[in-house]
Simulated scan of single mutants.
Amino acid sequence: MAIKKELLEILACPKCKGDVILNEKGDGLICNACRLVYEIRNDIPIMLIDEAKPLKD
C-alpha cells in the first residue's frame, strides 16, 4: 500500500520544514533542500532527522 496523497500533502521535512516528495521506488520521502531521504517502513514515514539518509546523486 502506497502512502496516501493526503498525508503526503501535509508532511514536511522536520529539519527545514520544507516540502518532501515521494521517491521513485515509493519507499522514501525526499527533502531536496536538506538533501535527505526519510525512509517509509510498513507504510509509515520515519520522519526523524537522526534516521534520515543523505540523498545520493
Rank of each mutant, 00 (worst) to 15 (best):
M1N: 04
M1K: 13
A2F: 05
A2R: 11
I3H: 01
I3S: 00
I3Q: 02
K5R: 12
K5P: 00
K5M: 06
E6Y: 03
L7I: 08
L8D: 00
E9P: 01
E9L: 12
E9C: 02
A12S: 12
A12T: 13
A12W: 02
C13D: 06
C13N: 07
C13S: 03
C13P: 07
P14N: 07
P14E: 06
K15Q: 14
K15A: 08
K15R: 11
K15W: 02
C16S: 13
C16F: 06
K17C: 05
K17D: 08
K17A: 12
K17N: 14
K17R: 13
G18I: 12
G18P: 09
D19W: 09
D19K: 15
D19E: 14
V20N: 00
V20G: 07
I21V: 15
I21G: 03
L22V: 01
L22A: 01
L22K: 00
N23M: 04
N23L: 02
N23W: 02
N23I: 11
E24I: 09
E24V: 05
E24P: 04
K25P: 00
G26Q: 02
G26H: 00
G26L: 01
G26E: 01
G26V: 05
D27N: 15
D27W: 03
D27L: 04
D27P: 02
D27K: 01
D27V: 04
D27Q: 06
D27Y: 08
G28D: 00
G28E: 01
G28R: 00
L29V: 10
L29M: 06
L29G: 03
I30F: 08
I30S: 04
C31S: 06
C31E: 04
C31G: 09
C31I: 07
N32A: 11
N32Y: 15
N32S: 10
A33C: 12
R35T: 05
R35V: 06
R35F: 14
L36N: 11
L36D: 05
L36T: 02
V37H: 06
Y38E: 05
Y38P: 09
Y38M: 05
Y38A: 03
Y38H: 08
Y38C: 03
E39Y: 06
E39V: 14
E39A: 14
E39F: 05
E39Q: 13
I40K: 06
R41I: 14
R41Q: 12
N42R: 06
N42A: 10
D43I: 10
D43G: 02
D43S: 10
D43E: 12
I44Y: 07
I44L: 13
I44P: 00
P45V: 12
P45A: 08
P45Y: 08
I46H: 13
M47G: 07
L48M: 13
L48Y: 13
I49K: 13
I49F: 11
I49T: 09
I49P: 06
D50L: 09
D50I: 09
D50K: 14
E51T: 07
E51R: 13
E51S: 12
E51L: 14
A52Y: 11
A52E: 10
A52M: 11
P54K: 14
P54G: 07
P54Y: 15
L55K: 08
L55N: 09
L55V: 12
K56Q: 12
K56Y: 09
D57R: 15
D57Q: 15
